[in-house]
Design a binder for these strands. Sequence first.
DNA 1: GTGAAAGCGCTAACAA
DNA 2: TTGTTAGCGCTTTCAC
Lengths: 334, 334
Amino acid sequence: MVTLKQLAKELNVSISTVSKALNNSEEIGESTVKRVKELAELYNYRPNKVALSLKNNKTRTIGVIIPNILNRFLAKVLFGIEREATKHGYNIITCISNESLEKEKESLQLLANGSVDGFILSVAQESQMNNEVEHFRKTIKQGLPIVMFDRVAHDVLCDKVIVDDFDATYNATKSLINEGRKHIVFISNINDISVGKLRERGYNKAMLENVGLESFVLKIKKKDDHQKKIKALFKKNKNIDAIIAADSSSAVIALNTAVSFGLKVPKDISVIGFASKSDSNHTLPKLTTIRQHAKVIGAHAAELLIKRIQNTGAEVDVKTKIVKTSLVKNKSTL
Amino acid sequence: MVTLKQLAKELNVSISTVSKALNNSEEIGESTVKRVKELAELYNYRPNKVALSLKNNKTRTIGVIIPNILNRFLAKVLFGIEREATKHGYNIITCISNESLEKEKESLQLLANGSVDGFILSVAQESQMNNEVEHFRKTIKQGLPIVMFDRVAHDVLCDKVIVDDFDATYNATKSLINEGRKHIVFISNINDISVGKLRERGYNKAMLENVGLESFVLKIKKKDDHQKKIKALFKKNKNIDAIIAADSSSAVIALNTAVSFGLKVPKDISVIGFASKSDSNHTLPKLTTIRQHAKVIGAHAAELLIKRIQNTGAEVDVKTKIVKTSLVKNKSTL
DNA sequence: GTGAAAGCGCTAACAA
DNA sequence: TTGTTAGCGCTTTCAC
């Protein structure tokens, strides 16, 4: 990499002259500016990012801590973050907590050494289960803002971007009830995390509001054989006529299992699930889904963080942005 | 963030004393070391990463350029990279090229300003289609090593990690032939990229080797309705008894379509596809898959890059590592 | 055993 | 109009 020093030497001017010329300072003479710019162009000069970071005490880099990159929703949020960040001239350093509290803490600490200007994260399952939030507070106290999305720690004061999980499941369940479904089962593979619980509550509320309907919740644990559990459900309960799934795996497996059991979807049974467009394009019939607009969530998170980074001093109140889900009706419901 | 300067001031010693004490230099007196370390601990001192990077002209950061984060395989490789990098004390800056040559170039250029010590990347579709490699060469010439994985540019001199695409499809096709299948269709959604072409060739070779068998390739384009195309295939060709898919979408859709057409899988028809474990767990019957060991690929790529970064000067020959796929037989084949 | 000073690449206040 | 200097945080050589 060429440096200002080398350019200066070759041009027989001082370093600061070169710097100013490149930054279009009014101070420098026209001809000098031209000479400098030409040489810089020739050598493809780029200001050293590290030096700038040190000078400005700003890295223009965001730390993103994701619990699981193989989760389609989270990957999509990351995509949204990356795009928005790039638009504003920020890079992202990605860490994967792997749902582990320890790794989450480490990543936070490691990047809080001047590597990043702030964080965007979704809380690891383990952290949520243990209700551990001190590491977040500590980071914020150090002057590094955090924006949480999806799985947030409600008792940490910071910007948040969340989904209307409760309402989404409530409304989806109601739409199943309106179809005339009586035996609606809620299946969830994510009961340990905040959003999973919210979704269950939304379902329960809708069911409770309708006399004669009884809640029926099937919780899948990580170690369970997902397919087996759902097959067993169908075997034991022949009268199930609707499924609402809190996660895409449960939704897809439930739909495919129903089909393989000879049930007609959606005639005999409806299926709705939190899932992506791609999930719904892979099933036959196409799955009716609750879409979370992951990319939008990512973009909002990035935007909130960047605003906060650039507003240090001006103590703005923390914001919680709710990104509404959409119920996209496909062929797995009436 | 606390700096050495602040610690030095508070302790009434010089900055260099503090620095040496923290780095366990023999020069410094025992008691001083103790005092320094205690205060550093108290203030939770961490050496500023940016300053170190500037000093050492090394960032301990890897630039990763991924064409598409929503592709499960690529996401998994990223996971592998992140894990290996973290193990070696490296961070990763992730850029998503979105299959665009322009974005790929930009990311490369942007990060070549001192932000990273090297790159790991998989070539964007557009770059492969246009056979554009100059930006890679330029980056390498600038002294920033590149490791390519999966979709590689064969005529760029750099380390590579690839999959045995040709052999994998060849062998998988042979295993279908050995099952007694006669009408084996190859479906691909990735015919524009290098690996897609290799996979097709492997299939063709196996078919050509067996008299009486005829190649039948169905190419899906990005803008096509994936489900419709595959449905039409089954409608027009009632005698298809095996599918081999170059990508997971095609595999999953083919399997589900076959089932919905009343075909018994695997009695009437076998399905094999390049796919992940999770894909195969979502279908009924479970999909027989060609596994690419994405995490291993990521880990190898990171390892290769880090070795090369740390070996500057010692001009090691470029390596191409082939990570063998495994054919995991599930219930969609005999 | 401790400190001063230089230097990594850059910007900006100040001097000339 | 151009140059000198200091400083961002750190390490390291050299002096004391």
